[in-house]
Amino acid sequence: MSLSRASRAALLTAVVAAGALTLSACGGGGGKSGGGGDTNFVTDTGGISTVAKGERTAPGKLAGETLAGTALDIADLKGKVVVMNVWGSWCPPCRAEAPHFAKVAKESKAKGVEFVGINTRDPNKGPALAFEKDYEVEYPSLYDPAGKLVTHGFPKGSLNPQAIPSTIVLDREGKIAARSLKALGESELRKIIDPLIAEK
């Protein structure tokens, strides 16, 4: 049975609307840069992109309620290196990287690094809270079930999250310095944040 033109158009619209995160959700990132247009970032073969200090841009507003029910605004963390990890409790690569993030978050806090999760596409908080408990994730996570923060919090042409998991790192000035579109191990995570800790 063939679809009518109106039905095909409606289906296409639905697919496009779901597209930004679902195209590569829970997949490993490739070595391609995102954002389109004339960008100033470099992607290495491991799917980690970085931006030179003078070329960085600030994200949009990234604020809301955490899984624990408290208010959190990323802008309040300016002056620290901020590691934002986009994750979902349903995502196997997110589970694989969670112990590494929990460990590095504890060990780097004294060096001026703050970790913040952005929990997305979990329709209720229960599984996400269980995930945090299971993996001993002590840092807060913004609750973003519909993906609004992820979709609207990053300017076009910047290093933005395009998969789950994604990790975005802000420098001490609150500007986007690095992005990974894949699950990260401890050494890869440190490789991203250590140069930003050392920046003056």
Rank of each mutant, 00 (worst) to 15 (best):
L3D: 02
S4V: 01
R5K: 15
A6T: 01
A6C: 00
S7A: 15
R8L: 08
A10E: 14
A10N: 12
T13V: 13
A14Q: 15
V15W: 06
A18T: 03
A18L: 10
G19V: 06
G19I: 07
A20L: 14
L21I: 04
T22K: 05
S24D: 08
C26H: 07
G28P: 11
G30N: 14
G31F: 01
G31P: 07
S33M: 08
S33Q: 10
G34P: 00
G34T: 04
G35C: 10
G36C: 11
G36D: 07
G37S: 12
G37M: 12
T39E: 05
N40Q: 13
V42A: 11
G46R: 04
G46K: 02
G47Q: 14
I48W: 13
I48Y: 13
S49W: 14
G54H: 14
E55G: 04
T57S: 06
A58Q: 11
A58D: 08
P59A: 12
P59R: 14
G60L: 12
A63W: 13
A63N: 13
G64N: 13
T66G: 07
T66L: 09
T66Q: 11
T66H: 09
G69I: 11
L72I: 08
D73Q: 06
I74Q: 05
D76F: 08
K78E: 10
G79Y: 06
G79H: 07
V82R: 06
V83R: 08
N85L: 05
N85Q: 11
W87H: 03
W90P: 01
P92S: 07
P93R: 09
P93F: 10
C94K: 04
C94P: 00
A96W: 05
A96R: 11
A96E: 10
E97V: 02
H100P: 00
F101Q: 00
A102S: 10
K103Q: 10
A105G: 02
E107D: 13
K109I: 01
V113K: 08
E114L: 07
E114H: 13
E114W: 09
E114Q: 15
F115S: 03
V116S: 11
T120H: 11
R121D: 02
R121T: 01
R121Q: 06
R121Y: 08
D122P: 14
K125W: 09
K125H: 10
G126E: 13
P127L: 09
L129Y: 01
L129V: 08
Y135M: 07
E136Y: 01
E138M: 04
P140M: 11
S141A: 09
S141D: 02
D144P: 03
P145S: 06
A146T: 04
A146F: 00
K148S: 11
K148Y: 02
P155E: 03
P161F: 05
Q162E: 10
A163Q: 01
I164R: 08
P165H: 07
S166D: 11
S166G: 06
I168F: 07
L170C: 03
L170M: 07
D171P: 02
D171E: 03
D171V: 03
R172P: 03
R172C: 00
E173S: 09
G174W: 10
K175V: 01
A178N: 08
R179P: 01
S180D: 09
S180V: 12
K182I: 01
A183K: 12
G185L: 09
E186W: 05
S187F: 03
I193G: 09
D194F: 13
D194L: 12
I197W: 13
E199R: 15
E199H: 11
E199W: 09
E199K: 14
